[in-house]
Design a protein around this nucleic acid. Structure first.
Lengths: 370, 370
DNA sequence: CTCCTTTGTTCGGGCACCGTACAAAGCCGG
DNA sequence: CCGGCTTTGTACGGTGCCCGAACAAAGGAG
C-alpha cells in the first residue's frame, strides 16, 4: 500500500521534473502531508534529490525535487553478432558512459564473449561511477524466461541461459543484482519510446540481416504470451516470392533484409550501402525503394492490426536515409485504412538503441517499483 | 483500498466456484476475518450468493459461495447488417435469454433500427427477469469513443454516437445504466475467450463480407491506441493480387472474404456455400482450400507478430467446417517460426459470438470493479 | 461419546492516509 | 522599510481497514 503510493510519487517525479511536493500532491490526489512523508522515504533511498534552488514566483518558494542523477543506475549490455557493448544510464535515462568492442560470437564459444562482456562492462561501470542497481542484456534472438531459444546469427549461444550466465560472470564487478535478458528489437523499441518523447504506442523496426520488430503498447514493451512477439521478418509480402529458410516463401526478410538490399544495390556491405545511399546512386535508390515498399506492405499489415500511430525505423535502416523512409511512408499511406497518417521516423539512436534500451529497462523498473 | 480487495475477492469467487471463505483467504493472502467482512459487502450488494449446502469432509463444513445467478445481469445488443439481436447473461456469463429479429439497416435510417432494438431488448429483458446493470452494443465498424467512425456495411450509421443513442432509447426499459459500444470482432473475441475456457491470449477472426480480427491479450480485449486495432482484412497476401477498394492490392479480403469464396466455389451465398462444403463438392473444397491458405498466410504474420497460441475462426468461417480449418492450420504450421503448434479452433458460438460478447463485457466489468 | 479438524466470527493493535492548523519564506503595495 | 498575501512544507489528532489471535460452531473418526 505505502509501496504503491511511493511508486506513484516517484513516477510523478519522473514524469515532470523538477516538481514540488505540493504539485505532486495535486497531481496524485494525495495530501501534501502524505507526499512529504513518502518523499522522505525516497530521499533516504537515494532515488530522488532536492535541488535547493528556490527560483521565485509568488508565495513561499518550492523546494524542487528531481530524480537523483547520482543514485542507483542501470547497466545495459548488448551481445551483437560481432560485438559486445555496455552502457550505464542514470535514473533519468541519460547515458553516462558507453563503450563497444568487437567479439566474434559466430566462431567463438559463449565463454569468450562473456569474458569480453565483463571487460567492457567493468570499464563502463568505472567510468560512470554510479552504483549499479541492475543489469539488462540485449540479445538478437528469441528468449523464453531468460534462455536463448532461437538465435540464427548466434548459433553457439543456443539454449544458453543468458541472464544467469551474465549474472555469474558479472557478480565480482557489480555484486548480486538482478539480471534480465531481452530481445534486441524489444529493447530498442523501449529506448525509442522513452527518449523519443513519443506517445505510448510505438512500432520499432530493427533492420539487419534479420528484420525484427519491437512493440510498445500503452507504454510498456509487449512480448506476447511466449515472449516471442515481434517476428516481422517472416511476414509474407509476395506469395510468389523466393523460398525462405523459415519454410515459407516471399518473406519480408528476402525482400528488405540487409543482404537482399546489398545484393539489389550491387554493393558488398552496410557501409558501402550507406555511402551509396548518401550519394543517391541510381541502383541503390531503386533497391531501397523496392525494399522500402516491401517493408511498407508488411508494416501496413502490422499497423492495421495494432493501430499504432508511430513507426520508427532503426538498426541498419536508421542509416539509409530518406529514400527508404519515403518508400515506407508512401506504402503505409496507401494501405493503412484510417486517414490519420502514420508517422514514420528514423531512429535517432540508430544502432545504439538496443544497448540503451537494455539499460533503460533497468531504471524503468526501478522507477516503476518505487 | 477496500474496493480493491473486494474486487479481488469477487474475482476469486468467479475463478473457482463454489468456494469457501477460508479458501478465498488462502488464495488471496488476506485474513479469514477480512474476507468475511468483504464477503458480507458482496452479499449485501447481491453479487455473490451463499449456497447453504454443506457437503461434508473433515472439519466444520464450509458455507460455499458462488456468483449470484439472480444478481445484476448484462444486456448485450448487436446491430448487424440486416438484423438486431439482444441477449442477457447473468454474472456467471451464462446466457439467460436471447432473441434476434431482422432489421434492414442498409436502407432504413438509424431511428428505425433503434426502434427494433428496443423491442427485441424489451422482450429479452422481460424473459430473463434479472435486473440489468449495464448494456453493451456490438457494431460492425470502427468506433472511437462510442462514435461509429467507419462502417462500410452500415453507411447510414456513420458518425452516430451509438452508445449515447442506445442509452436514450433504452432508458425507459432498463433505467439509467452505463452503455458501452464495441467492435463486433473485439467482442466476439472476448466471448470466445471467456466461454472457451482458453488461455489469456486469443486471436479471433470473424469472417464475413469483411474480415475482422479481435485480439485478446493478457485476458483483456486489445483495441489499440485509436480503438481501431484488428483490421486483418487488408493485410497483403499476394502483392500481385487484384486491386482492393481500400487502395491497396492483394488484400486478404479479396482472397478469403465471403464474396470471393462464393465466387470461387460457384455458389450464390453463405447458405449455399455451407451446404456445398458439407457435401464436400469439389470446386467448393478447392475454393475453401485456397481461401484458407490465404487466411493462413495473413494469420501467420499476425501470430509471428503477436505470439498468440490460439486462433479461433468465427463468423461465417465457423460454418465452413474442417476443410477451411485444415488449410489454415497447414499454412500456420509452415510459416509460424516457433515449433510449439498454434491451435486453430472453430468458434463454438458461431454467429452469436459478438452478441454474447457484448453482454459478457458488461458482467466482466462488474466483476472487475467489485 | 469424546476428541479433532476445519470453518467462520469477534476483538484489540497498528499502519497509513486524511483534514486541519501552523510555521516558513519570499513578493508586493503603501 | 514594513506588514499583508500567497504558497509551501510540517505537525497532530482522527478514522478506515487490515492483521493476528482467540473463540464458538459443526460435523467426522475412533
Amino acid at each position: 500500500m505505502r509501496r504503491h503510493n511511493r511508486a506513484l510519487v516517484l513516477q510523478t517525479v519522473a514524469g515532470e521534473q523538477p516538481v514540488s511536493r505540493a504539485r505532486i500532491a495535486a497531481r496524485t490526489g494525495l495530501t501534501r502531508g502524505t507526499v512529504s512523508s513518502l518523499v522522505d522515504d525516497l530521499l533516504a533511498a537515494g532515488l530522488v534529490a532536492e535541488l535547493g534552488v528556490t527560483r521565485g514566483g509568488t508565495g513561499r518558494p518550492a523546494s524542487p525535487l528531481q530524480l537523483n542523477r547520482s543514485g542507483p543506475a542501470g547497466l545495459g549490455l548488448e551481445i551483437g553478432v560481432e560485438t559486445v557493448g555496455a552502457c550505464v544510464v542514470d535514473l533519468t535515462g541519460a547515458v553516462r558512459a558507453q563503450a563497444q568492442i568487437p567479439s566474434p560470437h559466430r566462431t567463438e564459444a559463449p565463454a569468450v564473449g562473456l569474458g569480453a562482456l565483463v571487460s567492457v562492462a567493468a570499464r563502463v561501470v568505472a567510468g560512470a561511477g554510479l552504483p549499479v542497481a541492475g543489469v539488462g542484456v540485449a540479445v538478437p534472438g528469441v528468449l523464453a524466461d531468460g534462455v536463448l531459444e532461437r538465435a540464427p546469427n548466434l548459433p553457439r549461444w543456443r539454449d544458453v541461459d543468458v541472464a544467469a550466465r551474465v549474472g555469474e560472470v558479472l557478480a565480482p564487478e557489480v555484486g548480486d543484482v538482478p539480471v534480465t535478458a531481452g530481445n534486441e528489437a524489444d529493447l530498442g523499441a523501449l529506448a525509442e519510446h522513452v527518449t523519443g518523447s513519443g506517445g505510448d504506442d510505438v512500432l520499432y523496426v530493427s533492420g539487419g540481416i534479420g528484420v525484427g520488430a519491437g512493440i510498445v503498447l500503452d507504454g510498456r514493451a509487449f512480448r506476447g504470451a511466449g515472449g516471442r512477439a515481434g517476428e516481422l521478418g517472416h511476414v509474407v509480402v509476395d506469395a510468389a516470392g523466393p523460398e525462405c529458410s523459415c519454410g515459407g516463401s516471399g518473406c519480408l526478410e528476402s525482400a528488405a533484409g540487409l543482404e537482399a538490399l546489398c545484393r539489389a544495390a550491387g554493393v558488398g556491405d552496410l557501409d558501402a550501402l550507406t555511402a551509396a545511399a548518401a550519394r543517391e546512386e541510381r541502383p541503390t535508390v531503386e533497391a531501397l525503394t523496392a525494399g522500402g515498399r516491401a517493408l511498407g506492405i508488411a508494416l501496413a499489415g502490422a499497423v492495421n492490426l495494432l493501430d499504432v500511430p508511430v513507426v520508427v525505423l532503426g538498426g541498419a535502416y536508421a542509416r539509409l536515409g530518406r529514400v527508404l523512409q519515403k518508400a515506407v511512408a508512401d506504402e503505409l499511406a496507401r494501405r493503412v485504412l484510417w486517414r490519420s497518417p502514420v508517422e514514420v521516423r528514423m531512429s535517432p539512436l540508430g544502432p545504439d538503441a538496443a544497448l540503451v534500451g537494455a539499460a533503460v529497462s533497468v531504471v524503468r523498473e526501478l522507477v516503476r517499483a518505487g
